[in-house]
């Protein structure tokens, strides 16, 4: 029998670091609460996050702040068209003194990787990174190295300036747990941003969370109770992306090329659990699933040319699905 009260209590104690983290990040990031929350969900759900937004929305700053607020190794990699896989994962270097090859580890050997403008590097570099994301290990020469936990890739890309970019293929983009879209701040938020940035003393982020806190939270998150009704709700949403007709969404069948993969169901459940965790709850409710749905599904639904021509996005379709599927 699951003792929800005990889990609730445990979560309340163990999730205290989230407040510290949010407070510390809040020193430099104004607004964008949803984005920061989703980054923490990715961190807890052991999934990688892709941030998409026009330039200047503090994507990179948010990721840098998150990693600075933690006692963890952070590496920023600026993706460029001339980047090579060896620049990322490392390579074998010939040592003339002793006449032997030695391994030079690349910047990927860190806890937090900021893959800035991931779509600017060619497919071979993206593949090298995405392989590391999936396997959580790197092979240089004949030696394989396990990446240290937590290992999380936070990638950014901007939706404009598509010239000279290498869009991530669907199979690879599926490896990102979340694709978070960032929008412009409102007037009040922008005023605060303006004031903070023109002031002489820009706040500094201090490390307030240890990697152990995250690993412990991940363990505890496994105990968050997810009822069968919620599991079925998740499956209904995912299946509606694959066979919309069966859910009375006939209009979507012509607009969806292919629906979300089983990875979507897994990440929806994990994301909902993480959402419940940061809401200090020991059980998942439909709000948690809905709260994470767009970010888990938007990059997993391939739209048809008809949809593109009619300017219907995967977000519109997810919204329609959520409005159609009965909440338990």
């Amino acid at each position: 029998m699951v003792d929800i009260t005990a889990i609730n209590e445990k979560i309340k104690q163990e999730s205290a670091f989230i407040d510290l983290l949010l407070k510390e990040i809040g020193k430099v990031i104004v607004g964008q609460k949803d984005m920061v929350e989703k980054l923490i969900i990715g961190l807890l759900g052991n999934g990688h996050v892709l941030l998409e937004g026009v330039p200047g929305l503090a994507k990179t700053l948010a990721i840098k702040s998150l990693s600075s607020a933690m006692e963890a190794k952070f590496q920023r990699i600026q993706f460029t068209p001339d980047l090579l896989p060896a620049d990322l994962i490392g390579t074998m270097i010939y040592n003339q003194k002793d006449g032997e090859f030695t391994i030079k580890k690349g910047p990927i050997f860190a806890n937090f990787i900021l893959a800035d403008e991931i779509n600017r590097a060619p497919a071979k570099v993206q593949s090298a990174l995405l392989e590391a994301m999936q396997e959580k290990q790197i092979t240089i020469g004949a030696e394989t190295f396990k990446l240290e936990e937590p290992f999380i890739v936070l990638a950014t890309q901007n939706p404009i300036e598509q010239e000279g970019t290498y869009p991530l293929p669907e199979a690879q983009i599926d490896r990102f747990m979340l694709k978070v879209k960032i929008t412009y701040p409102n007037k009040e938020e922008e005023l605060l941003i303006l004031r903070k940035n023109v002031a002489s003393d820009f706040p500094q982020i201090n490390p307030v969370v240890k990697t152990e806190d995250i690993l412990n939270a991940r363990k505890l998150m496994q105990e968050v109770y997810i009822d069968e009704k919620i599991e079925k709700y998740i499956l209904n949403i995912v299946f509606a992306t694959r066979s919309p007709k069966e859910y009375g969404l006939d209009n979507l069948s012509e607009l969806i090329n292919y629906g979300a993969s089983p990875r979507a169901s897994i990440y929806l459940a994990l994301g909902a659990k993480a959402m419940a965790f940061i809401r200090r709850r020991g059980y998942v409710i439909p709000e948690d699933v809905r709260g994470i749905c767009q970010d888990v599904l938007r990059h997993r639904i391939a739209v048809t040319y008809e949809a593109e021509a009619e300017d219907i996005t995967s977000e519109n379709m997810i919204e329609e699905i959520l409005n159609k599927i009965e909440v338990p």
């Binding site: 699951v2 009704k229 409710i285």
Partner: peptide
């Protein structure tokens, strides 16, 4: 009702 339905309360 949510507590009973989703939290085994």
């Amino acid at each position: 009702a949510d507590l009973v339905k989703f939290a085994k309360f």
